[in-house]
């Protein structure tokens, strides 16, 4: 079947999927690496931030929930980092190559810039401030993660798409834990504090969907690595957050 010639680009543009780094072009390899690094760094930074929160939990059930979130986000980082290893990453060094708990000051201007040292989403540059704030952030960001994973699980690198499909329901459960936590906090009379945190985190989560750069979107879409635009995903997140808050009486 030697005359079955087709370029990688047209194969991907027609919805083809890849299963091994050996078949990837340099640009494809680089873009998949960036997606993986962004995910791994964000999960590790998120887990590191949440680890401190365990000690601020008001009760045993909340401590367990926070610990579980730390454990599962770290595990998600590990499973995607394994795939990066197949692309040549030194996984043992990678896991300890950055201070994942490092943050800017709480009052630092909201900015979409990434840190110079890792690929975490900019939202993870900002520190959590107490239990109420942590639970609120977990809901606001968790819903955004859900929307992003909805797109990522369709990407054309099948081993990674499968990992994201496994990860999505576990991350969705973190949103459920956040929602239950917030319901308890509303009941305890913390609604005003939640609203303050909502303002803080909304402004910092909204930019993570990226800027509307049509050229960039087109090039990623041609590689089968993006399916929906930033604006579409941001709108989905906004709607999901609106629903969640209305359900909690915070709308």
């Amino acid at each position: 079947m030697a005359d079955d010639n087709m370029t990688l680009e047209s194969y991907l543009a027609q919805g083809g999927v890849l299963t091994s780094p050996a078949n990837a072009s340099p640009r494809y390899r680089a873009e998949v690496m960036k997606i993986m690094a962004t995910f791994v760094d964000s999960e590790l930074a998120g887990a590191a931030g949440f680890a401190d929160v365990v000690n601020k939990a008001p009760g045993l059930r909340e401590r367990i929930a926070a610990s579980k979130i730390v454990l599962e986000k770290t595990r998600h980082a590990e499973t995607v980092l394994e795939l990066m290893g197949e692309f040549g990453t030194n996984t043992a060094r990678y896991a300890t190559s950055h201070p994942w708990a490092a943050r800017l000051a709480r009052d630092a201007t909201a900015d979409t810039r990434r840190s110079d040292h890792d690929m975490r989403l900019s939202v993870f540059n900002y520190p959590l401030s107490g239990w109420v704030d942590a639970v609120t952030m977990n809901l606001v960001m968790g819903l955004a993660v859900g929307v992003q994973l909805g797109d990522l699980r369709k990407l054309s690198y099948q081993p990674l798409a499968e990992k994201f499909a496994e990860i999505a329901p576990v991350e969705a459960n973190h949103v459920k834990l956040a929602s239950e936590g917030l319901a308890a906090l509303v009941e305890a009379g913390d609604a005003d504090a939640i609203r303050l945190s909502l303002d803080y985190w909304r402004a910092r989560v909204a930019p993570i969907f990226g800027s509307e750069d049509p050229t960039r979107f087109k090039s990623l879409a041609a590689l089968g690595l993006r399916h929906r635009s930033s604006a579409e995903m941001r709108a989905d997140w906004d709607a999901a957050l609106g629903d969640a808050l209305a359900g909690l009486g915070l709308g």
Binding site: A37, T89, M119
Partner: peptide, 16 residues
């Protein structure tokens, strides 16, 4: 230039 990179620590190989 949109050069690829991730870790900037010589660990991940994205910027090859």
């Amino acid at each position: 230039l949109d050069a690829p990179f991730a870790c900037k620590a010589g660990v991940c190989s994205t910027c090859r």
